[in-house]
Design a protein around this nucleic acid. Structure first.
Lengths: 109, 109
DNA sequence: TCTTTATATCGCAATATTACGATAATAGAA
DNA sequence: TTCTATTATCGTAATATTGCGATATAAAGA
């Protein structure tokens, strides 16, 4: 096996898991944090910032983009990347909701 | 290659990435959501709830536990699992912070 | 046009994840 | 003690991820 049984879970569960998976690598967290700091930048800026080769950064950007976390706009011969606020907000709301629901309950085990 | 270059990133980045990675699978999201709903339960309850075999559930629980997202307490011959509120709060705060910082900036690309 | 710059994609090797049958380990019941 | 219930671990096959050199692609400049 090895393939995730995504079909057995809800769309929302798969969607949240996809976003979390995209953030499940320190390089991609570093990319997100850099984008928060500089607002927007091109791929080359991130290559200069992180200790990874250009194809590797490009691949990480692709995964963040596929998960919807960032947007890329072609500007001349470079690509301007920035965070998709809506998607980050969705994650924020998700964990906020869980936190609030946990507050109302007793501590268990 | 294939090994993540975790040593090049900060402890915080690695920590957030680890938590996100643990949530990066729909089965583990489903387990978290079930635990939020029932507050606490034993492994067998989750096995009855999800379309996965017992060893697979046990393995997912192990990963959630290693990431600090859940706690397990031995109760007789079963184990009581529940969510670690503090860790979920840390994730909540992380995304809240990013959301707030993004609000103050212009939309880019 | 030819060259440079900026990204993306291909292909591959190393490693990690996913899923589960078989089996071990442990506690409680008979 | 023997049986049952509950969970963890081992072993393994299928698949996915990570990282990067080589190369392709596309736009801008000389």
């Amino acid at each position: 096996m090895g393939a995730t049984k995504a079909a057995f879970f809800t769309d929302k569960q798969n969607s949240i898991a996809n976003m979390a998976k995209a953030l499940g690598h320190p390089a991609r967290i570093a990319i997100i944090e850099y984008l928060v700091k500089v607002n927007a930048c091109i791929c080359g800026d991130i290559v200069n910032e992180l200790p990874l080769a250009q194809p590797t950064i490009s691949q990480h950007l692709k995964e963040l983009k596929q998960a919807g976390l960032i947007k890329g706009t072609i500007e001349g011969n470079s690509v301007c990347y920035c965070i998709d606020e809506k998607v980050v907000d969705r994650l924020h709301e998700y964990f906020k909701n869980i936190s609030q629901r946990l507050e109302k309950k007793n501590n268990c085990c």
